[in-house]
């Protein structure tokens, strides 16, 4: 009897934790999003869509995800391949690269704010070197491209390391013999990368993309720290509706939109990068 119940007992804490802290709030949020004064309906979504910032938030979110995630993947792939060719000091380099992972995203945002604002380190440096006539400000609504670039750079700096870690782990699962065989059979380094390494890395690229895309849709602290209200994204709008407008149901509508986008992105990556069992290394 005890033997039969034991597996369920062991799983119970995790199930209770997930139910109380994830599943119940999730259902509540969805319910809240569809709740209106007259019953259930799409009222909150219509109010969300009517808002001035909604369009900007959608565009900014997609531009941010669309630029940051591919950049991170490409850079992380390059970094992982570089690590593979490193002999001594490999662990040290990997360790240094992963330092930003240890910082909270708000701290990371503030670091970049300190660097980039009109009285920040970079502006002061350029001014003192005489390269600019007066301290420049890049993080205002008047400089949308610079502001966007700053947000992407900060997020890139902060969160590329997790992609590197996933890809390095994935790369270690691919035996070096495949690349050696390809080189003996006439493949150039670039062709080995595109024809052999990249296809064999598909499962880890998929994991990295799912993780990064979902987190990029939810990027908040870095965006708020650098962009403030000048760079609205879906999550920061949810925060504004909740805290400044005191409208939890519209905030919940935003949350549901973000959740749907994350789910959609996950499904897309699962489908686009699926590796049938018979093609695995």
């Amino acid at each position: 009897m005890r033997g039969r119940a034991l597996p369920y007992l062991l799983v119970a804490p995790a199930v209770i934790f997930l139910t109380v802290l994830f599943f119940v709030p999730l259902v509540q949020t969805i319910a809240l999003a569809f709740e209106t004064r007259t019953g259930f309906g799409l009222g909150n979504f219509l109010r969300m869509e009517d808002d001035l910032n909604f369009h900007d938030a959608v565009v900014n979110t997609f531009r941010f995800v669309g630029l940051a995630v591919p950049l991170q993947l490409a850079a992380a792939m390059g970094m992982a391949m570089m690590l593979r060719h490193l002999g001594r000091g490999r662990d040290l380099v990997l360790w240094i690269w992963t330092i930003p992972l240890g910082l909270s995203d708000l701290a990371a945002g503030l670091v970049w704010l300190a660097l980039l604002n009109d009285r920040g380190y970079i502006a002061s440096l350029l001014f003192h070197l005489g390269l600019v006539a007066e301290p420049q400000s890049w993080l205002t609504y008047e400089t949308p491209i610079a502001l966007f670039a700053a947000v992407v750079i900060a997020e890139f700096w902060r969160a590329t390391a997790i992609v590197v870690v996933i890809l390095v782990a994935g790369l270690q699962l691919v035996p070096k013999e495949y690349a050696e065989a390809a080189s003996v059979f006439g493949a150039s380094p670039w062709r080995i990368f595109t024809r052999i390494t990249l296809p064999l890395m598909k499962p880890s690229i998929q994991s990295a993309l799912i993780l990064r895309t979902v987190l990029a849709f939810e990027a908040f602290a870095v965006v708020i720290a650098i962009g403030g209200r000048n760079f609205p994204v879906l999550v920061s709008e949810a925060y504004n509706w909740q805290n400044f407008n005191q409208e939890p149901s519209v905030a919940a509508a935003y949350a549901v939109v973000v959740m749907c986008l994350s789910l959609l992105a996950t499904v897309v990556w699962l489908w686009l990068l699926k590796t049938p069992a018979e093609q695995r290394a």
């Binding site: 495949y178 050696e180 390809a182 003996v184 059979f185 006439g186 093609q279 290394a281």
Partner: peptide, 29 residues
Amino acid sequence: PPRARGLAMVFQNYAVFPHLRVRENIAFG
């Protein structure tokens, strides 16, 4: 470099590319 030496090799663990069909493996070189 290996690719310019004009030779072929059979590896101990075969190193047959798992993501390619037999046909494409044979055609690879």
